[in-house]
Write a protein that binds this DNA or RNA. Structure first.
Lengths: 412, 412
DNA sequence: AACATAAATTTAGACGCTAAATAAAAGGAG
DNA sequence: CTCCTTTTATTTAGCGTCTAAATTTATGTT
């Protein structure tokens, strides 16, 4: 048998020439391993339809490339007889990904291994607006450097990075020109900021990433038709239909910018902003409310937190405000439910935890507003939802392009 | 060389054993042929990346199955030297498809060949509502029989049938239960009506089919992010994002049922209905208008046609009605444009031709209502838009499942 | 008639897999 | 402890599908 034109493994001992395996099979096996934990040859036969010979050959190939590692021979529970199966698992240390949330005020970076487990998390505020593009770039670079240092990893092991920005991004990852906020984010994130590292850098709208995060491991896990609303300051919606993110021709899908047209909504103000606004209004009108005490004597600045807390303690003015907010959200969700017919609408963002106080109002009102009321839930991600979605996007990229990328600890 | 386990072609003359070809390659070549006209081996090499040997083998195989036919040896223009290339083309007579529009009042059937060319078209009205399910079934069967007779084709050559219905249909082709109109259409179209023929019968929402039609060969040809509004009696919207139809979890995506929430719209009434309604209102108010003359002395029933005609002739009352309708449509389109960000919105249905009178108003108002105004156009399909879309859906099915179907004139 | 050209056809063999035979690594029975 | 059973890994032969290269064929040109 003549040796094939294949790299490495030329140690002509007993070793027969390794097969050249079809890319699709490598990907399929890798995908099975990422979905499950440790995997045996028999598992792969069931999952992929390949022969045992091929399945194991694929595992050996992936292990040689560094994507997969073989576990020492502990038996799987349950099996007792027969030759012990070799066990392989996806190597989460084959690299890492970066998930970033670059907002108006703050940049957040998550470093995650290839199983999506967080290795480090760092946030930093930008200089007070208006920060120059150069200043924003510098801050972003710095946060990334700190996060990698905290994870104890060199930049070379980063296989992909994804960035969530609160402006319109089309399906090719380009910041759509001409939008209100685009100049704050179209600062060469892909071309300049990370050019030195040579990482693939993906850009996406923050609400879209929030949707990816929820479908990945949040309350929307496994839901194929899903809407996620970032509802803190500005309403923004990420839409997943049949498991795929919607963008529209310029990336504007889900931008609820013209909500002025919707009765009883009138703007794209989010929950926190409305709570502040109406809280201040109540104070200005000298209504008797706990909010005043929570704000304290020195200042007049109501923060959303105080309104929610006052309402929780039974304050009627605050509860009235939450009712108003709930009604408004119900209307927005009703429109979403009618137009997109999602199975589930998730309210996310920093305000999500508080937003659970709005759920009774929302679920009560929804059936009156639409014939197809979706389930409504509140995200449990907190303010890392966008960065978590960015991690998911980067992981998707790595999975898709695995065979073109070089794992961190690839042998030779 | 041992003969393979392959059907037919056992005439052991010079004929070498035919190759068994990969399904994906058969499909790829078939797809190229459907897209282009006559095709040579060299064309296929360029289009598919296969070798000439394989490409021609695929053609011979497809020809033997009946999907493709070889053209007699006229040279293609331009080439002058060398051995003449064999030329193959997709065989449009390998079968036919049915595209149906089953509405409340009328059933329309198109018979089309596999290139999508119409071979016959028949419409028939149902018994006056409420027609029983049995009566509706009988009418539908009858229209189909007449259409096939008109095309001169037996039922056996039908490879697939698609039906557009004006109710909610999910992405698996099931009529969603519990909807206003569902009982008129959930009459066993797939299970009973055509059970005898053994055709694959696909069900889809009428507006969705309209969208397929426009993207196939209408004003939306090739547009990847497209909304089509059926705007005659009831507003219904078909949405295509990134080239794919949107359904939502129950098929309700694009149902504008809760438009009550949208300022200045208030219902899902379509253009024709509004024209009638406001036309009657004007007559009742005794306004001086040409509409009265067009309606005639005997009756008081305004039809939409009269309003459009009066407006075209300069009647101010009628023009005022069209303005109101235009404003309303602009608002609906603005909401669509904001939520979906389509490149183009097409107004379709029987009323489409008249609707071009509304375009100036709509395009004038849109930029005020949304930051992302889509292009707006009027369909040129007339009232066959749904049936045409059904043809397209059936063709897609045939293309997808070609290798599982038996062409009409398959040899032996 | 001889040549040039572009395509078809034939042939050998490469590639990536499967199927079947064989070997290995364990537990259990005697 | 040895033998048997079970379960898996490994090896081997070879099959199906394609490519690459050589050969042939059909045409136009000189």
């Amino acid at each position: 048998m003549l040796p094939n034109k294949v790299k490495g493994n030329d140690v002509s001992t007993t070793a027969t020439t390794p097969q050249v395996l079809r890319l699709a099979n490598l990907k399929a096996v890798l995908s099975v391993m990422r979905a499950n934990g440790a995997v045996t040859g028999t598992d792969l036969i069931a999952a992929t339809g390949l022969t045992r010979a091929t399945a194991i050959a694929v595992c050996d190939d992936l292990a040689a490339r560094g994507w997969v590692r073989e576990l020492p021979g502990e038996r799987l529970v349950g099996t007792t007889k027969g030759r012990p199966a070799r066990r392989f698992e996806f190597n989460p240390a084959a690299g890492c990904v970066l998930g970033m949330d670059v907002g108006m005020a703050t940049a957040t970076v998550l470093v995650a291994d290839l199983k999506g487990r967080t290795l480090a998390r760092v946030s930093e505020r930008f200089e007070k607006p208006p920060a120059s593009a150069a200043s924003r770039r510098a801050t972003i670079k710095q946060v990334v450097a700190r996060a990698l240092a905290e994870a104890g990893l060199p930049p070379s092991v980063v296989l992909a990075a994804a960035i969530g920005v609160s402006t319109v991004v089309d399906r090719h990852g380009k910041v759509a020109a001409g939008h209100e906020l685009s100049e704050h984010f179209d600062i060469g994130l892909q071309t300049e900021v990370f050019a030195d590292y040579g990482w693939p850098v993906l850009l996406e709208n923050d609400a879209n990433l929030a949707a990816l995060a929820e479908r990945w491991s949040g309350v929307g896990t496994g839901v194929d038709d899903l809407a996620v609303m970032l509802a803190g300051e500005r309403l923004g919606t990420g839409l997943i239909e049949s498991g795929r993110l919607l963008h529209g021709c310029n990336g504007g899908a889900g931008e609820v910018g013209t909500l002025e047209l919707v009765d009883g909504v009138g703007s794209q103000d989010g929950i926190a902003r409305l709570a502040r606004y109406w809280g201040n209004e109540a104070l200005a009108a000298d209504k008797p409310t706990l909010i005043r005490e929570l704000v304290g004597p020195g200042t007049n600045r109501v923060s959303a937190r105080f309104v929610f807390e006052a309402a929780a303690r039974g304050d009627e003015v605050a509860q009235g405000i939450l009712d108003r907010i709930g009604l408004r959200m119900a209307r927005v969700i009703a429109v979403l439910g009618t137009f997109f017919n999602p199975e589930l609408v998730v309210i996310g963002g920093a305000v999500a935890a508080s937003a659970s106080a709005l759920l009774p109002t929302i679920t009560r009102e929804l059936p009156r507003l639409t014939a197809t009321p979706p389930r409504v839930a509140v995200s449990e991600f907190g303010d890392a939802i966008v960065a978590a979605g960015a991690v998911r996007l980067a992981l998707d990229y790595v999975e898709e392009h695995a065979m073109e990328l070089a794992p961190a600890d690839a042998p030779a």
